[in-house]
């Protein structure tokens, strides 16, 4: 055996050690990111969820104005937590459209009556098919769509106070 070859195992171990130590020091981001960011919104057309409010189609997002697309459900607790933030964004003049996942009209109506209604349109996504097409893995998630129907930002989880500036900046940039 060559003199230097006896140190190869130690080198290999150092490499493996570096990899796992790094993973321990800097835990990986476990959020599931959409693969659709930077790509055009998939084409869809959803029926209205609640009476008096139109359903949602992908055509709305290509009208030139950046919009938020909020994926929510009446049975989702973090959705209640983020409702005040969405109301604030609405008051700032941000158009917000919504996809309601696996829900019933009565439950969504009760949800909106209790937590406020920031939405322009709400599409009824009974089977989560649009949610999956968006690359969203849970509720709530919020997408920033530019005026040409391209997804520019995905926010996973409820929107908190500190998240608002990032969303506003993305909207501004997409203008």
């Amino acid at each position: 055996m060559k003199r230097s070859a006896v140190w190869l195992p130690l080198l290999g171990f150092a490499l493996v050690f570096a990899v796992v130590a790094m993973a321990l020091v800097r835990p990986a981001d476990r959020t599931v990111r959409s693969a659709m960011i930077g790509k055009p919104l998939p084409t869809f057309s959803l029926a209205a969820m609640v009476p008096g409010k139109p359903g949602l189609g992908s055509a709305v997002f290509t009208q030139g104005q950046p919009r938020l697309l909020n994926v929510f459900a009446s049975w989702c607790v973090p959705c209640i937590a983020e409702a005040p933030m969405l109301m604030r964004l609405k008051r700032m003049g941000v158009p917000i459209e919504a996809v309601a996942i696996r829900d019933t009209p009565a439950a969504v109506q009760a949800f909106l009556a209790r937590n406020g209604d920031p939405y322009g349109r709400i599409g009824n996504d009974r089977e989560s098919s649009v949610q999956l097409a968006l690359g969203s893995s849970g509720v709530p998630e919020t997408f920033v769509i530019d005026g040409k129907g391209r997804i520019v930002l995905q926010h996973v989880g409820d929107i908190r106070d500190g998240d608002v500036p990032e969303i506003l900046a993305a909207l501004e940039k997409a203008r």
């Binding site: 055996m1 003199r3 006896v6 140190w7 195992p9 130690l10 171990f13 150092a14 050690f17 796992v20 130590a21 321990l24």
Partner: peptide
Amino acid sequence: RGSFILALLLLYIGGALLLFGLRIG
């Protein structure tokens, strides 16, 4: 707890491989 086991890993395996490199010749 991972860091503790990692330290043990470094001590035992690193030590054993060091010994291997020093002695196997």
